[in-house]
Amino acid sequence: MLEVKNLDVAYGRIQVIWNLSLNIGNNEVVGVFGPNGAGKSTLINAIVGVVKAKSGEITFDGVPIHNQETHTIARGGIVVVPQNRELFPAMTVKENLRLGAAYIPHARAKMDETIEYVYSLFPILKEREKQLAGTMSGGQQRMLVIGRALMSRPKMLILDEPSLGLQPSLVTEMFQILNRIKQDDMVILLAEQNVRQGLKVIDRGYVMENGRIAMEGSIEELSEDEHIRRAYLGV
């Protein structure tokens, strides 16, 4: 479904992604694990057009998207839950959710239906629907961005460290909810530092270090690898 080939990304002169290739098939949930600074967010921002690739190719359903603008990519079915949320703080929870669908033609018609689905995943959002997004707690804001992303009825959901900054009890809940979204047939690219929890959701994963793919494998391969056990799972 999504194919990244020989991607290089640089901020000015400093290159942070080196000749990176990965792919995500239909009906797959794929993880990208790696420590802080590995380049996970940069990779995601390059996929959704927030930063421009220096070279390489990104195709979605066979269509090259690396020269498209972010809003076009969003309308084409890739939606991102950014690491730093990017909500509309002066709008209510419900307005934020509605904006998730309002500018995506195929999602707009199903807005009311989708909002019920999002509320079923995150009942707290229904309780708080009239509250301003900017006044909610970090965890609630995280749920709101995921809800806003789902409102666009994406073909593929990209999550950038959804568990970041959540208290431990919420982290577990968050990954349960991600599993529910997965069961509803969503294709997901999940960037995480929390490998232990991430392994419970994904079908297959990559490990990213210093802007390169260091390893790729199934859940079993990843969880049995010595380096990963030591560096990420603490055993």
């Binding site: 809003h71 969003a74 309308r75 939606v79 950014p82 909500l87 509309f88 703080p89 666009s152």
Partner: peptide, 15 residues
């Protein structure tokens, strides 16, 4: 209104 609050957030939702 959305762009005024958060241009990047706006582009992500397809604006």
């Amino acid at each position: 209104f959305a762009v005024g609050q958060n241009p990047r957030g706006a582009s992500i939702v397809g604006i």
